[in-house]
Amino acid sequence: MRYKGKNMIDWQEQWAYFVRQWTNNGYKMFLRGLSNTCKIAILGLIIGIILGAVIAIIRVMPKYKLIPRILDKISAVYVAFFRGTPILVQLIIVHYILKPIFGFSVSSIIEAIIVFGLNSGAYVSEIMRSGINSVDKGQMEAGRSLGLGYWTTMVKIVLPQAIKNIIPTLGNEFIALMKDTSVVNIIAVDDLYRAFNLMGGSKYWYIIPYLVLAICYIVLVLIIAGLVKIIEKVMSKSDKKQEKNSKSKGFGKVSQKG
């Protein structure tokens, strides 16, 4: 074997090694890692949206009474904590501090989903708040003037419009969340990063696996971005298009929604 300089990389050999690793066991690890990553990101986002909506409404609520004021303070503390610490630290706190102390036995992936949900809840609440504030105040006033309650108007009128306004930002949040999942290997979750890390194998040849990893994330993000665009289009269509082509269909729709 001819001597090669320190910085010379035998791409062919490395590629062959990677392919061998991939066909051997790697594709299974890849699929499991991919599913775990998607699970954490998607479920985290769903928890985040629900939590974020509730907290956003609490924070924009009129605060004449005591209970909304207390809830507001609690949610302010929650947002401050989850925005103020890195997600890595939050994962460590849950896994290495809270878990031993309280002795709950859940799998690492559920821990990760919960932490990501709580984390994105804090961010989504701020996004939602700006979304709710972006809806014309008159919409709430009109609902209230007809005798509807605050929550009814919020849920039926303001929130749907707010969500439509924040879809792009929410997509952004989802992309960030998806990429942030690469830190969950710290609590031993087999995510996408870990799958490619293992493919380095006994030779520690990481160059190609990590490049492929980067491409995987790029593809994932592009898919999400495409989906967000489609959703945006569908939602913006709904209020511009005149539904005159099928009157009976529209009529039925009205009755269902009320």
């Binding site: 006033e141 009128i157 539904e243």
Partner: peptide
């Protein structure tokens, strides 16, 4: 006016 924009 304040019609609900998300309703027809």
């Amino acid at each position: 006016f304040n019609l609900f924009n998300n309703k027809n």
